[in-house]
């Protein structure tokens, strides 16, 4: 059975490759592994058409959690990786999978919570204190649990708050192992707290009783970086097209496109490509 299917797959690929030759030759496209926040917030829907209009390059976005997106780059299944977890990105480059990390922009996380506010944190500014209260109150909290950028930011915040979440978590802490939207759906269904990026929250429609509970703490800022997958590791990487996209993102034109994107008049992403150390 497997052999047969294997043979079919092989045959198909050969056929397809033959038929696709002419198309591929002039196919100006790159595969971009990115996060759910950039895709689901609608940012790409705004900036990618601008980039295509200028260069003719089509950017095909696979939206995954940050960890998974970096994996996709590591396997060579993408040309460019655009994610938000600085330390993981630096490791990605240090391990030789990416050529160079360029900072692009930041957005911020917000703590989302139910109107009833069982932990009494709504409207406060200190995220660390808020998390401690949630833990002490045993209020329901949804964790992405999917090794995404948001998930690692959440784990980092627990650490900042002095909570050893691996040891202290109880039935109130629900690890769902899914994307941002799914986590918000789960929080909406169970009136739980959840850490979300502002962009996904703003474009999220199924809010139910949820609202922004804590925002504005600078520890909630979330930096995005972009990297070309290393052609030395994966020879098929479209170096020139990918580099063109990266250069556009950090150019004044690209940076302006990012700051121009708004939902209900609210800017979601703040370009900072020129800020050293971002």
């Amino acid at each position: 059975m497997f052999k047969l299917n294997h043979a079919i797959a092989m045959g198909l690929i050969v056929l397809g490759a033959a038929a696709g030759q002419s198309v591929l030759a002039q196919d100006k496209s790159i595969v971009l592994a990115s996060t759910t926040s950039t895709q689901d917030s609608g940012l790409f829907g705004h900036i990618l058409p601008l980039f295509k209009a200028k260069t003719g390059i089509e950017v095909r976005v696979i939206s995954q959690g940050t960890g998974q997106a970096l994996d996709t780059g590591r396997r060579g299944d993408a040309d460019v990786v655009f994610v938000h977890a600085k330390s993981q990105e630096e490791k990605f480059v240090a391990d030789g999978f990416g050529v160079k990390r360029s900072p692009v922009m930041y957005n911020d996380f917000v703590l989302i919570g139910p109107k009833g506010d069982p932990a009494k944190v709504n409207g406060t500014k200190d995220i660390a204190a808020a998390l401690v209260k949630i833990k002490n109150a045993g209020a329901a909290f949804i964790s992405r649990g999917d090794k995404s950028g948001t998930h690692s930011a959440e784990l980092n915040l627990w650490k900042v708050a002095g909570v050893d979440i691996a040891a202290d978590k109880g039935p109130w802490y629900r690890d769902i192992g899914q994307g941002m939207g799914a986590a918000l759906n789960a929080a909406s269904a169970s009136n739980a707290y959840v850490l979300a990026d502002r962009g996904t929250w703003l474009s999220f429609k199924n809010r139910g009783e949820l609202l922004i509970s804590v925002e504005g703490d600078k520890r909630l800022f979330n930096q995005y970086g972009v990297m070309l997958v290393n052609p030395a590791k994966h020879a098929h990487v479209k170096r020139e097209l990918g580099q063109a996209f990266i250069e556009w993102l950090v150019s004044p034109e690209g940076q302006k496109a990012i700051s121009d994107y708004k939902i209900n008049g609210e800017q979601l992403f703040f370009p900072n490509a020129t800020v050293p150390g971002a």
């Binding site: 759910t36 689901d40 899914q178 994307g179 941002m180 939207g181 799914a182 918000l184 759906n185 909406s188 996904t200 474009s203 999220f204 429609k205 199924n206 809010r207």
Partner: peptide, 9 residues
């Protein structure tokens, strides 16, 4: 699947 995850039921 995508629209569900975006909460656009």
């Amino acid at each position: 699947a995508l629209e569900t995850s975006k909460g656009d039921l």
